[in-house]
C-alpha cells in the first residue's frame, strides 16, 4: 500500500519554546555543536491505490497543518 509522509513544522517567525527546551537539554548533555532545534510533527499515511496529490495536499494543508503558523511538506514517495 502506498505510503505518504507529511512533515509539519512551525513557521520560522513563530517561536518554538519546545524546540528551545530541547536545545537547552542538548547543551546540558554537552552537545555544544547543535545551535538550533525546531520541533515538528511527522505523519505517515497509508493510502489505497495511487495517491491523489491534490487530495493529499488538501488533507495536509487543511487538517494536518494550521497554515496560520505552520509550514507543511508532502512526500508522496513516502520517504
Amino acid at each position: 500500500m502506498p505510503r505518504v509522509v507529511v512533515d509539519v513544522v512551525l513557521k520560522p517567525e513563530i517561536s518554538d519554546p519546545q524546540g528551545q527546551a530541547v536545545l537547552g537539554a542538548l547543551g546540558r548533555l554537552g552537545h555544544r555543536g547543535v545551535t538550533g532545534v525546531r520541533q515538528g510533527k511527522h505523519f505517515v499515511l497509508d493510502v489505497e491505490g495511487t495517491p491523489d496529490e491534490a487530495e493529499l495536499r488538501e488533507i495536509a494543508e487543511n487538517l494536518l497543518a494550521n497554515p496560520v503558523i505552520e509550514d507543511v511538506e508532502l512526500h508522496l514517495s513516502g520517504d
Binding site: L10, P17, N66, I69
Partner: peptide, 16 residues
Amino acid sequence: CEAGLLPGALTRNSHL
C-alpha cells in the same frame, strides 16, 4: 481560530 472565524492561533505557553 482553527475554524477560521478568528485570526491567529494559540500555541504552547512560552514557559511550557
